[in-house]
Write a protein that binds this DNA or RNA. Structure first.
Lengths: 250, 250
DNA sequence: TGAATACGTTATGTATACAATAGCGCAGGA
DNA sequence: TCCTGCGCTATTGTATACATAACGTATTCA
């Protein structure tokens, strides 16, 4: 009995939204491709009304684009769009870090951040890092960034960062593997981890400007990371642009 | 014949969205108040489906909040939320100004900005400034900021700033009058105009850091402006929080 | 008298039927 | 052979009907 209720515990709208997002981010729907409501109804199992609500939400989320004559298409992103998105998110995270530093954070609140840090340290001890470890890193890194954002205690900022991260953090993708194969990956991860360490230190010492600066630097590292990945794009040609954003921000 | 077609030229969804937004921002629906679909159907003239789509859009826009048990309510904002939103927008505009400066902008592209600047100068020559002039100022200022954002040539950033500005710039409100009555208003406007002048200069001379810094300072001015207005809140008690955000950002 | 439960009403979530429009194809004429 | 116009089809936009869940009220029992 409990098994069947799993389906009903989530609204049809949410179910449709998740299913469609997966289809987009997995590349089943390619950038530029028009999304047919009827087809979405078939693949998601929901009826047209919740599917339409999901489409509207995904449009607001930035994954879809409204077609003037009606309907939606999967949005396409240029390389510049992607790197700008990374820098954008870094700027917002910088503000969040500054807020955290200026407004003060208790040792107890920093605890989960430090645990994340330690866990990532553990992973990075592997040389070279395995694909599984890299995958764990991606999850832990996302968690670190989310926790850091929360420290700002600013609902509008948290909300905005969530929206700016919709693309960067949404997708599970094969890109992770492609990137972990790069020889430079390990170096970049180590530098990124150093940034994590510094931002915690800055927040602890209530150095707002330093906390902000390091997060922006962190984003610039991610942009370098993206460029690097794009130079080795042999693995990537078939992946949707969104998958690119994801990993480049990690 | 043409008269009736005006109604049909806009989709029911858009019509409902605009109507509901007006109701929220005008204060007809108070923060925290639940929005009844049925009531919205009556006041907007659209049927339930487009009304629901409009509600979803307004939620994504940040004006509404989903109620766990179903339905939507008008979102309420604290003073801190509002000042954070202003600083947030200033940070994004700073990034936009930096992009504009670093990426280069032609003299022709700066022309509309300078026209705005001159028009505002003209208005500020009045001492004290009239309510009508202040109202024109609000419009011109919004135009200036929109043009500046465009100069970044970064669609993701422009989009994000639009979202961050949904609250600041959306509302026509009686708050304009309340603020223009403050004796300090004129000084603040003059300082703000100086910021506008500096950012154009910085962009022209491709000084990215300076362009960014001045826009962030501009936001801090707006926050001071907000605090000032809140100290004289006699006129404001009956206005929805959103109306506050609007003017404080101008 | 107060609290708890049951029932009824109301509002939201979902599905589907209907309408309108845009795009496409075919056919006919120049 | 190409261009134009008409008509059809497919898909989206809108409306409404149905189902379900939540909230309020009233009644009953402790």
């Amino acid at each position: 009995m409990a098994e069947r209720e799993v389906d009903r515990s989530v609204s049809q709208t949410v179910k449709a939204q998740l299913a469609l997002r997966d289809q987009i981010l997995s590349g089943a729907l390619r950038p530029g491709e028009r999304i047919s409501e009827l087809q979405a109804v078939e693949t998601t199992g929901a009826s047209r009304t919740p599917v339409r609500m999901a489409l509207v939400r995904l449009e607001e989320e930035g994954l879809l684009e409204a077609i003037p004559s009606g309907g939606f298409m999967v949005k396409a992103f240029s390389e510049r769009d992607i790197s700008d998105s990374i820098e954008l998110r870094g700027t917002l995270e910088g503000l969040a870090a500054r807020f955290a530093a200026e407004r003060g954070v208790s040792a107890r609140e920093l605890e989960p951040l430090k645990e994340c840090l330690a866990a990532i340290d553990e992973l990075l001890r592997q040389v070279p890092i395995s694909i599984e470890a890299f995958s764990s890193y991606v999850t832990l890194n996302a968690r670190f960034h989310a926790l850091l954002t929360e420290l700002s205690r600013s609902p509008p900022l948290i909300r905005q960062i969530d929206r700016a991260s919709a693309l960067p953090f949404a997708s599970p993708s094969g890109f992770v593997m492609a990137q972990s194969a790069l020889p430079e990956a390990q170096q970049i991860l180590i530098i990124g981890q150093e940034h994590h360490r510094v931002v915690i230190d800055a927040i602890e010492n209530r150095e707002g400007a330093r906390a902000e600066a390091i997060m922006r630097e962190h984003a610039r590292l991610a942009v370098r990371n993206l460029r690097l990945a794009l130079r080795n794009r042999t693995h990537l040609d078939l992946l949707p642009a969104l998958a690119l954003i994801k990993t480049a921000t990690d």
